[in-house]
Write a protein that binds this DNA or RNA. Structure first.
Lengths: 247, 247
DNA sequence: CGAGCACTTGATCGCTTTCAATAGCTGTGG
DNA sequence: CCACAGCTATTGAAAGCGATCAAGTGCTCG
């Protein structure tokens, strides 16, 4: 059974991202209306979901997997400008063409809504627009946080920042208790990390090796990471260590 | 007469930012409700409007002047994460404490709304929430555009990008026709430009001198800039030169 | 076993930062 | 009126960090 088939006829009430996605605030009847315009699509790792500049005829939510938003200059330099995780929203209501490439970083399943009916629903059901506003404000905060990383942090701090973000997010999903050490799989290649952080993949590799040598992290394999002391990692990231652990 | 007094009893219907601000879509009766919770405040250049972490008891719109959002690390490194121009919205409904410092870059007048009544209105009057969503999506686009600048552009390209953004915005306000050359005043110090671009002020100064030497720009004074050929500037910025001039 | 891919490591280069000196401007007070 | 402080901006020289160029490793899959 393919990943897509696994979700193909899923009822919204059984949806794993139901409570965090754009539909989180919807009432039963509103969900039913959404179900009438929704369909699932799956993508393989590496596949481009939407090309920058192309017309968009759907919006939707990431159900499982990870996607990235990237911008590319004419000479090929690329910068990732967003990392889309399960429950994150894709697309921009009220805009014709996609401003960025959307690429599946891992195998991915999306819950898509036809764009026009969705836009209509945004007007008639405030619950959707309200939730979308919340999510957009959160994304704006994340983008601004990332501007500090891109503009002012050293390579080492950039890597530590990325690791701490992934670790925190992973912890909030899986192990809820803050045990001593955190273990997770990196969902990104070195190149994708470089594109996210405004570095080269060589520098990413070197800094990961350095953090490993300094025992800030441990590598079980190239993608499997253990963080023995989260506080230490956050110091390396240059972040305020006073802040609450799970933000 | 102070700048503030100039606006003190201004009726919304005469407001210069009426058609672009968060209240743009409001009907007459909705405007009247807004007027009952609004008040004007003015700030001098350099003054901090809101300190990061402080509780916010108002939200509002920039009426005139320029403000900036900045983030600062413990060791003093700072990154500007937003530039607020007339009609831009300040504050985040539904959040208690300010995530960033808001600083008046020039003398400034704000139209403030008491936070709680404004949040109530957001629920009852969809026009406000809808407009705020639009504006937030636009800000998110701008933030992502800036992530490319911060992450992948050279110092020279960064300066050219900033100048072209200010020039474009200025052109869209003042001279509507795209005459050959564009003239404007830089509303930012070299240091503020550096904080925006993730550079040092020395590098900003050097790159401006270089662009001047190469006749991409002309300086009447240190802050008064002429751009003889907008297309040339956008090439220097590494931007797609095919894109429409006034976006 | 060899091709392909993700990753690591080394050596060198060059851009931006850092440190430092100086210029230009404005406002203040003797 | 001029001297001087304080601020913004410019310019120079040197240092450092990350990029670039180049091998080489380890793993998976045909």
């Amino acid at each position: 059974m393919t990943l897509k088939a696994q979700f193909d006829h899923t009822n919204c009430s059984e949806c794993p991202i139901r409570h965090r996605a754009v539909c989180a605030h919807c009432e039963r009847d509103e969900l039913e209306e959404l179900e009438s315009i929704k369909y699932y699509r799956s993508f393989e790792a590496g596949q481009t979901i939407i090309w920058s500049g192309d017309p968009m005829n759907f919006v939707g939510s990431v159900v499982s997997g990870i996607a990235s938003l990237t911008q590319t200059m004419e000479d090929g330099r690329t910068q990732m400008v967003g990392l889309l995780l399960p429950s994150d929203f894709v697309g921009r209501p009220g805009r014709e063409n996609a401003p960025y490439d959307v690429v599946a970083t891992t195998d991915l399943v999306m819950c898509c809504f036809r764009k026009k009916p969705f836009e209509d629903m945004m007007v008639t059901t405030p619950h959707i627009a309200q939730r979308l506003l919340q999510m957009t404000l959160d994304e704006l905060d994340a983008a601004r946080e990332w501007m500090l990383v891109l503009g002012r942090k050293t390579a080492r701090e950039k890597i530590a920042s990325l690791l701490s973000i992934i670790a925190r997010r992973d912890a909030s999903l899986h192990q809820s208790g803050q045990t001593g050490s955190i273990i997770f799989d990196l969902p990104l290649t070195r190149e994708a990390m470089a594109d996210y952080l405004g570095l080269t993949l060589e520098t990413v590799s070197r800094q990961i090796s350095a953090l490993k040598k300094d025992k800030v992290i441990t590598l079980e394999s190239k993608r499997h990471i253990t963080i023995p002391d989260m506080r230490r990692l956050m110091e390396e990231a240059g972040d305020d260590t006073d802040g609450g652990f799970l933000v």
